[in-house]
Computed example of a mutant assay.
Amino acid sequence: MSGEPSALAVVNQLRDLAADPMNRRAIVEDQGCLPGLILFMDHPNPQVVYSALLAVRYLAECRANREKMKGELGMMLSLQNVMQKGTTPGETKLLASEIYEILQNASKSEAEEAEAAASCRRKAQFFLGGTNKRAKTVVLQIDGLDDSARRSLCEEALLKIKGVISFTFQMAVKRCVVRIRSDLKAEALGTAINSTKVMKAHQVVKKEDGAEVMLPLQEGSDVVVEENTELPDYLPEDESPSQEPHKAMSRLGSMQDGAGWLNTAANFLSRSFYW
C-alpha cells in the first residue's frame, strides 16, 4: 500500500485541478470524480470534507456544470447533511450552504447556456459572487508575496483567523482573494499578514468608474483577530501534492497533465467507496 495515495491527498489534488477553469468540465464529466467528491463530503476526516467542498465550489463556478451537479445522485442531500450536522464547523457549514444555494438556483435559461463556455474559460476568481449575504469577499494586494515559501506563511496567517471561509492566490499579481464572514473586518486580514514581518497587505477596491484603489489596512489595538480553533488545515503541506511545482495541476493549461491524474484519482475512488 506504500504507493496508494491517501483520501486527503486525492481530494486535495482534485481541489487543485478544479481551481483551473480549463479543468472543470472534464472533472464533472468524468464518471468517478464527481461521485467521489460527494462521498468525500461524508468522510470522517473534517479536512477531507472541507477540501471536497472547496473542489465542488470551484466546479460550480462553471455555469454549464451546475445542472449536472445538481442532478448528481446524493449531491444536494450530502450538502444538506453537512449543513445540518451538529459537529460541522461553522465555516464548513457556510461553504456548504453557499454551494447548495448556487445549485438550487441553477437556471436552464438559454442566456445562461450561451454564457457557459465563456464562464469556464475565465481566469479563476474564487467566491466573487454575492450569493450568500452572510459572507463577503476581500481582495488583498500583498507586498512581498514572491514565492511558495511566502505563500505558505500567508496561508498560515489567514488560517488562524476565525471567520475566514476560503482563499485563493493570484501569485502573478501578488494578490489573494479571501472569502470571509460578513462580520469580520478586513483590517483583521491585514493584521495577520503584516504579522509575518515579511509581507504587507493592502485592500483592493473598485471605484464606480472601474478604477482600482489600494487602501491601507490599518493596524491598531481595536483590531481583534480571533483565532480559529474549529477549521481543519486548508493545505496540509506534508500531504499536499502542490509542494512539487512541476507536478502542480492548478495552473492554466494544465489539463494535459491533469487528465492523467484524474485517471489516478478515479481509480482510487473506485477502490475506496468503503470508508
Rank of each mutant, 00 (worst) to 15 (best):
A157P: 10
V139Y: 04
L140Q: 07
S152H: 13
P44I: 02
S78L: 08
R251A: 12
A259V: 08
N81T: 12
D183Y: 09
R122C: 12
Y234P: 01
F126M: 07
R63T: 11
L215P: 00
L215T: 05
L39S: 11
L54F: 05
Y58F: 14
C176Y: 02
D257Q: 11
Q104V: 01
L189C: 02
Q47T: 15
N105W: 09
A186I: 00
Q141N: 11
S240C: 12
T87I: 09
K162A: 13
L235M: 08
R151P: 00
T88F: 03
I161T: 04
P21W: 05
D42E: 13
L140A: 05
V56S: 04
A149S: 08
V178Y: 01
D209V: 02
A18D: 04
Q203G: 03
C33Q: 13
P89Y: 13
V49F: 09
Y58L: 00
A117D: 14
M171Y: 06
A149F: 03
K185H: 10
I38V: 15
V173T: 15
G220T: 11
Q256W: 03
E4S: 12
K162N: 14
D209Y: 07
V10H: 02
Q203N: 04
P245I: 07
A116H: 06
G36Y: 06
Q141F: 11
N105G: 07
L215R: 03
T131Y: 14
R151V: 14
Q256T: 15
G90F: 02
L8Y: 08
L269R: 01
N132T: 10
T168W: 01
L54H: 10
E237C: 06
M214W: 04
D233S: 12
Q84E: 14
L140G: 03
V164M: 00
N23V: 04
N81Q: 15
Q13G: 06
D143F: 11
G220I: 10
A96Y: 08
K247R: 14
V10S: 04
I180V: 15
S97K: 05
Y50V: 07
Q203L: 11
P232C: 12
K174A: 14
F169N: 03
S221H: 15
I38Y: 02
S195Y: 01
M199A: 02
E91A: 06
G253D: 15
Q104M: 07
M22P: 00
E115K: 09
N23W: 05
K207N: 15
L37Y: 11
D238C: 09
V82Y: 10
R66I: 02
L184A: 04
Q170F: 04
Q80A: 14
V225A: 10
T87S: 12
L145I: 03
